[in-house]
Amino acid sequence: MSATEIKFSGFGGQGVILAGIIFGRAASIYDNKFATLTQSFGPEARGSACSAQLIVSDDRVLYPYVTKPEILMAMSQEAFNKFLPETTDDATVIIEEELVKPQGLKPGMKVYGIPATRIAEELGRKMILNIVMVGFFTSVTGLIDYEAVREAVKASVPQGTEVMNLKAFDRGYQYGENLK
C-alpha cells in the first residue's frame, strides 16, 4: 500500500469528524502508519453535508489534501450525493443503509451498507452510530488493524462511555464480518 485517500461524511452531529479522528489516531498512533486528517472550515463546510478527509500511508504524507477518495463513508443522503462524484471509479462506498439510497454508482464500485442508526438505538444511544460505522468500516476495508482501531475508539470517546462505545464498535465490526 502506498497511500489511501478516505472521505468521511454525513450531517452535522452524527460524529463524522470523530470517525475521521479515530481512524487517523488508529493508523498513526496504534498501527505504525502515517495519517493526515484535514477538514473544511469555510462556508462550504456549514449546512448539512459535513466531511473529514484522511490520508493513510506507509510513508510520510506530503500533499495534505484528499483529491480523489478511494473510500467514501456516507451517513446521509446529501453527503452521499455531494461527495460520490469526487471518488475514484472503483471506490469503496460505505453507507448507513437506512439513510442513504445509493444512486449513480459506477460499475467498478463496491458498496457496503449497515443500519447503523438502528443498531445504535438497540444499544440504547442513537449518537453512537458513528462508532458502529467505524467498526463496520474496519471490517469491510481491512485497512487498519482491528486492535488499533479499538484502542483508538477507547482513547477518543468521552471518559465513562468506553464500554458502550466498544460494544457499538464490535457490533459494527461483526456486522461487516457476517457479510463476508
Binding site: S28, I29, L37, T38, Q39, V61, P64
Partner: peptide
Amino acid sequence: DECVGHMTEK
C-alpha cells in the same frame, strides 16, 4: 499557515 494549523497528525 491555515493548512498546517488545521491539519491533524501524530
